[in-house]
């Protein structure tokens, strides 16, 4: 957790995600204080090799989320292909093969919504390049619970539909390029001043 009360970051991304995430992760420094949890839309049959590609470019450890695994800072977790990824109140992962949501499994909305119930205003949501609107509802929910939401600037996104749908659906706090998001996470996040008095009661 950061001193200003942030506890976790969730990222939703779809088409164009491979290059965008590779660039974004290169900004995250050693000792980054928050766990990062990603839903990337991928084909059900895709293998897990792509995540290890990122590992060479990133100081944090990238792994696929395991069922009942404890969520820790210093890790970037990916939802496994063809499973929904959910957060439990004890800050562990759950997986499900419930029906697709927004034609997707994993679905960004499923992750974001379950994360809101656990971290409420301690949550940061980021929605990036993609060709559908999964995640927009989840972004609005994060905002409603006092969390912070960032959309990739659609002008800089390989596929603008997904970040644009967040901007249309929710009052996003920041609209930034990939480099902008990376720099904000690296330089500004921990210095951000906010009122966290209500935070302690959510546990």
């Amino acid at each position: 957790m950061t001193k200003n009360g942030y506890k976790a970051i969730v990222i939703g991304i779809s088409a164009g995600g491979l290059a965008a995430l590779s660039k974004l992760f290169s900004f995250l420094p050693n000792g980054f204080p928050l766990p990062v949890i990603v839903v990337q839309h991928v084909a059900a049959t895709s293998n897990r090799f792509i995540y290890t590609l990122f590992n060479n470019k990133c100081r944090l450890t990238i792994k696929e989320a395991d069922d009942k695994e404890e969520i820790q800072a210093g890790f970037i977790y990916f939802a496994p292909p063809d499973y929904h990824l959910l957060i439990e109140r004890d800050e562990t992962f759950s997986l499900s093969i419930d029906a697709k949501v927004n034609h997707s499994r994993p679905s960004i909305d499923v992750l974001f919504e379950s994360a809101v119930y656990v971290w409420s205003s301690g949550l940061i949501g980021i929605l990036m390049t993609g060709a559908n609107s999964d995640g927009a509802h989840g972004m609005r929910l994060i905002k409603e619970h006092g969390g912070l939401i960032i959309a990739q600037d659609p002008k800089t996104a390989e596929y603008p539909v997904m970040p644009q749908s967040a901007i249309d659906t929710a009052r996003v706090d920041k609209i930034l390029s990939i480099e902008g998001i990376g720099e904000w996470l690296r330089d500004d996040l921990v210095h951000l001043t906010r009122d966290v008095k209500n935070e302690s009661r959510s546990g």
Partner: peptide, 9 residues
């Protein structure tokens, strides 16, 4: 049951 899925359902 794992609670998060139950809550969602």
């Amino acid at each position: 049951y794992s609670r998060a899925s139950i809550e969602r359902r």
